[in-house]
């Protein structure tokens, strides 16, 4: 069974242009949920977004749970439960239903992060069992 754990980060909602011009600490992973929304995972806790990020809503986010998967695990556990095509470029963020649960996949070249909102965690793990 997949063990989904809280994936802490910072979530920001801002003007799309402001997000385009956003500068984040090196090593941070930026997941663009929407043109006006990002989720940023920092390599070390306590890092924050740079200043000058006008009219943004910035919030510490602990509402997502997920787990990192090897490519083999991704293929074996997850891909069979999606009926959309995975993007081919890397890295890439894909969002859609995984086993009928709203979820997100962050695809790097050698691994992938499966994410979902905490209230869905139980159903997602059950369905991917």
């Amino acid at each position: 069974m997949l063990a989904l754990e809280t994936i802490p980060g910072v979530r920001a909602a801002a003007d799309a242009a402001a997000i385009d011009g956003m500068v984040v600490a090196e090593g941070a992973v930026v997941l663009r949920f929407a043109p006006d929304e990002v989720f940023i995972m920092f390599p070390k806790p306590g890092r924050e977004l740079n200043e000058g990020f006008a009219q943004a809503i910035i919030a510490r986010e602990t509402g997502f749970v997920g787990c990192w998967l090897t490519l083999e695990e991704l293929a074996a556990r997850v891909v069979a439960h999606i009926d959309w095509a995975l993007p081919v470029e890397r890295p890439a963020l894909a969002q859609g239903l995984v086993a009928g649960v709203p979820a997100k996949l962050w695809l790097e070249s050698g691994r992938a992060l499966l994410l979902c909102a905490a209230p869905y965690a139980h159903e997602l793990t059950e369905r991917l069992r």
Partner: peptide, 12 residues
């Protein structure tokens, strides 16, 4: 309008 929205329903 210039307004940002963030849904926190499942975060909080």
């Amino acid at each position: 309008l210039k307004v940002q929205v963030m849904d926190r329903t499942m975060s909080l």
